[in-house]
Amino acid sequence: MPMDLEQAQAFLSERFVDVRDVVPVTAGAWSTPYFFDARIDGVQRALVARFGPHRDDFVKDALASGWTTPELPVPRAYALLRAGDDYGAVTERLSGSFLEELDTDGWFHALPRVFAVIDQLRQVPLRTELPAYVAVDDGLDIGLDETQLGLGVSWHDWLIDLSDEPDERGGGWSGTLAASPTGDRSFREGMELLATLSEGLEPPRSFVHCDLLNRNVTIADDGSALRAVFDWGCLFAGDYLYDVAWLEFWAPWHAGLAGLDVRAAARAHFGPTDPAIDAFEERMRLCAIHIGLCHLAYNAYVGNPDEIAACDRRMAQYDGRMDAPI
């Protein structure tokens, strides 16, 4: 049962000093957020608390907060909490406009800044120790499953691990997908293609945000800099081009981004520093197919047949069913 406003006020007031202005925010897919102010280290700060059943999402947010730089502005995580049967996290609250609100000109100027985020992630050591400044409730296990994160397994093995696990988050989608007029066949054939294309391919690995849209990145109102990169729940260690393919795959859903050639811009930007740039096209295709497969499953899970069909049409531009340029 999600925590309501009265419960959130009481919970936060027990744990923080001078809590003020607790305000509910539109809930995300996996958590319920609240804006509030409180005094930490003697300073009144603008904060956001999120509550939900998925501990690892919050732990990943805390992990990523240790990577913040001017080019990668991750909100500072202050606390990881146990909230009854659920979990919580309290992080810095940063303002800004969402990338999705940009027009084509705005995206043209923002895209190099998004690429700079990816460059910064390429420099982060593949470790899972949290920053020492994050307060953790007594008894709360903050260990991450490194195999689930993609650490210690090959790129091929991580990519093809797309089975339906009904007892896990997002599980139970296979029956709905099987009843889809297009999605099930695309999924089965896509999995076969994914296994073939990824065999023997092991690109440089780094942390991947895997959700740089969906209102997870904000930019200053004047477009001068990114303000925040948050919601790290999909974080994994893989090919950095996955974040590029994410932008390209979903571009038709965002009018401003759709006007740009993301692939050409990425190749020009990353080419000089990527030792595996010769396989750029193959890697981009592989990442895009995996994104499509994941979202056929996800849209089956949430029961959205229109998005299954739309995702299937987009996949057709990558898996060989449609002879059309990306």
Rank of each mutant, 00 (worst) to 15 (best):
F16D: 01
F16G: 01
V17Y: 07
D18M: 09
V19F: 06
V19Y: 04
V19W: 05
D21H: 13
V22Q: 07
V23M: 12
V23T: 15
P24T: 08
V25W: 08
T26H: 10
T26W: 03
T26D: 12
T26C: 02
A27T: 12
G28T: 03
G28L: 04
G28N: 06
G28E: 02
A29I: 13
A29K: 14
A29M: 15
A29T: 13
A29L: 15
W30N: 14
W30V: 15
S31T: 09
S31V: 01
T32D: 11
T32Y: 09
T32I: 06
T32Q: 15
T32K: 09
P33S: 10
P33A: 11
Y34Q: 06
Y34S: 09
F35S: 13
F35G: 11
F36Q: 09
F36R: 08
D37K: 15
D37Y: 11
D37N: 15
R39C: 13
I40C: 00
D41F: 05
G42K: 07
V43R: 15
V43P: 10
V43K: 15
Q44D: 15
Q44T: 14
R45E: 13
A46K: 14
A46N: 13
A46R: 15
L47A: 04
L47N: 06
A49K: 00
R50Y: 09
G52C: 02
G52E: 01
R55P: 02
D57R: 10
F58V: 00
V59D: 00
V59E: 03
V59N: 01
D61E: 14
A62R: 03
A62I: 04
A62L: 04
L63K: 08
L63W: 06
A64T: 00
A64K: 00
A64H: 01
S65I: 03
S65D: 03
G66H: 04
W67Q: 03
W67N: 04
W67K: 04
W67C: 03
W67R: 07
T68E: 13
T68F: 06
T68N: 10
T68P: 05
T69D: 09
P70T: 06
P70V: 05
L72G: 09
L72K: 11
P73A: 12
P75Q: 07
R76K: 15
R76Y: 00
A77G: 05
Y78T: 02
Y78N: 02
A79K: 08
A79V: 11
L80P: 02
R82M: 11
R82W: 02
R82T: 14
R82P: 00
A83Q: 09
A83C: 14
A83V: 13
A83R: 04
G84P: 07
G84R: 05
D85L: 13
Y87N: 00
Y87V: 00
G88Q: 10
G88Y: 10
V90K: 05
V90I: 14
V90A: 05
T91N: 12
T91L: 14
E92L: 11
L94I: 14
L94S: 12
S95Q: 13
G96K: 03
S97P: 00
S97V: 14
S97N: 14
F98C: 11
L99S: 09
E100H: 11
E100A: 12
L102Q: 12
L102E: 09
D103H: 02
D103N: 12
